[in-house]
Design a protein around this nucleic acid. Structure first.
Length: 502
RNA sequence: GUCUUGUUAGCUCAGGUGGUAGAGCAUCUCACUUUUAAUGAGGUGGUCGUUGGUUCGAUUCCAACACAGGACACCA
């Protein structure tokens, strides 16, 4: 663990510190300013005649990022959570201790420096140091100062190191935090109640996905990590809450790629006495609010796209989008046989037993989705791929449902909720039928959910928004791993065996 | 799950039609009191991802495996 020569050298330096009475892991520290506060507060030093203000004493703490040692003077560039600042450390001020600093302080160490503000010959506001302590000795060397850490694997596995070396990584996660906070605030302002529903589900419902399975020893039953909170949140509408939301993790046991991680964060909200059209409006409001609060331009660069987030967003019907954007004729869209023929001709794999709604979704997924770059609401989804959505009053084959696509990816899914318990029961049965015909992701029957609906769920609408994908769009991150602090990785040395305890 | 590319020093990267490897930064020694990837001089540092095979000899060729990147499939 500590056998590397660089680590051994640094441990030796920590020991030398101890020998001269310094604790290499000191915790009595005190700083007066962050680096950015220092720069703002002492900007006036530029205008002073001797370009220094010896009347003040300032203490800064940061990690050494650059080190320029000379015979009797040196420059340290240290970094704290707010940014970088330069220190000027000289033998004049520190005497013999200066020789120890030169020998024992290294890039990576966290140091505390006290002194006064001054401006260097090269016009950089810096701290003229008269007291210097190594507060935390880093015994592992940092990556190279110019290229930093490029290896994606190391960056994801050792995110702490990535954050030290690539400071822009920290700003992505600060932005993520602000986005989540703003969303929470937005819904609270509108009277929504934030709730927490179970992660361990007896039945994995609320979405079409494969779940993780785990086992509860005390109860002697298997549990599923939730794939969606939907059915629990809607039980709360039955119970009498009018507006609820939850921002939390979902888990899906499926493939991983640049837009999928096995655990991901979802916002779901349910709103009694509203329809899916209200959700579309609310979504546009939410985006406007986010762009305002985060001071974002209406047009953002994402990958190779320029995305225009001006509201209102485009709206298009599901079948209409297949015709207009996918370029597929109505003749094909409306015939099960012709779609099968068309999919075969395009060498697309699909489930041959599936209903026409599923086959149309193959057309949509393969020929439309990628082309939806600017925010677009696709509305009027086929009923048989919408097992929890309310049936349209105008057309029994479509659902009062929409999805929002941006940059060719689904960001959100919402609909007016199905609250007819008997219709819901039949839809679950249809799902079980689809499952028996090879659809592994189809829903299970959830009898308790049906029971809840039997007591009467008020007319309502609900929506889910993928937080990770939203953050990706707003931070121009092409991979979901760049917006997850600790993305899922395979273990380095084989699989861990799990011991079953009784 | 499939295909594909990669894995060489702490980091960023070269290289080799088979004879155990190089650079820059970092590190170590020395010099240097205003540097900005500081500079100048000299040195240390590697089971070339792992395991097998072919060979007198493998880091290089072959195979399997591990991990990663990218694409596809599934999905959000």
């Amino acid at each position: 663990m500590f056998s590397n020569r660089y680590i051994e050298q640094r441990i030796e330096k920590a020991n030398e510190l101890r020998q001269i009475g310094k604790n290499p892991y000191e915790n009595r520290v005190e700083r007066t300013f962050l680096s950015n506060e220092f720069s703002e507060k002492f900007g006036y030093v530029f205008d002073l005649e001797n370009r220094r203000d010896e009347s003040v004493s300032v203490t800064l703490i940061g990690r050494i990022k650059f080190l320029r040692l000379m015979g009797k003077a040196s420059f340290f560039k240290i970094e704290d959570s707010a940014g970088q600042i330069q220190l000027y450390v000289s033998k004049n001020e520190l005497g013999e201790w200066f020789e120890n600093i030169k020998k024992l302080a290294e890039v990576g160490d966290i140091i505390q420096a006290t002194g006064y503000p001054f401006v260097t010959k090269t016009n950089e506001l810096s701290l003229h140091v008269n007291k210097f302590e190594i507060v935390t000795k880093a015994i592992a060397p940092l990556p190279e100062k110019f290229h930093g850490l490029q290896d994606k694997e190391l960056r994801y596995r050792q995110r702490y190191l990535d954050m030290i070396v690539n400071s822009e990584v920290r700003s992505v996660f600060e932005k993520r935090s602000k986005i989540v906070s703003q969303i929470r605030h937005f819904f609270e302002q509108k009277g929504f109640l934030e709730v927490e529903t179970p992660m361990l589900h007896p039945i994995a419902g609320g979405a079409n996905a494969r779940p993780f399975v785990t086992h509860h020893n005390a109860l002697g039953v298997d549990r599923f990590l939730r794939i969606a909170p939907e059915l629990y949140l809607k039980r709360l509408l039955v119970g009498g809450f009018d507006a609820v939301f939850e921002i939390n993790r979902n888990f899906r046991n499926e493939g991983m790629d640049h837009t999928h991680n096995p655990e991901f964060t979802m916002l779901e909200y349910y709103w009694a006495f509203h329809k899916f059209e209200d959700l579309i409006k609310l979504t546009e409001d939410l985006f406007e609010n986010l762009f305002n609060k985060l001071n974002l331009e209406k047009t953002l660069q994402y990958d190779n796209f320029e995305i225009d987030f001006s509201t209102p967003f485009r709206k298009i019907g599901y079948l209409e989008s297949i015709r207009e954007i996918g370029g597929i004729s109505d003749e094909i869209i409306n015939s099960r046989e012709k779609i099968i023929e068309f999919l075969n001709a395009n060498k697309i794999e699909f489930n041959r037993n599936a209903s026409i709604g599923y086959l149309q979704s193959e057309l949509f997924g393969n020929f439309v989705e990628d082309k939806l770059i600017n925010p677009t609401f696709v509305i009027d989804f086929p009923i048989d791929i919408s097992p929890l959505a309310r049936r349209s009053d105008q057309n029994s084959q479509i659902a009062d449902r929409f999805e929002l696509f941006i940059a060719g990816t689904e960001v959100s899914n919402g609909f007016s909720e199905l609250n007819d318990p008997i219709d819901q029961y039949e839809r679950f049965k249809a799902q079980i039928d689809a499952k028996s015909k090879g659809d592994h992701e189809a829903h299970e029957m959830d009898e308790d959910y049906i029971r809840a609906l039997m007591y009467g769920m008020p007319p309502a609408a609900g929506q889910g928004i993928g937080i990770d994908r939203l953050v990706m769009l707003l931070t121009n991150s092409i991979s979901i791993r760049d917006v997850l602090l600790f993305p899922a990785m395979k273990p380095l040395h084989g699989e861990l065996e799990i011991n079953e305890e009784n």
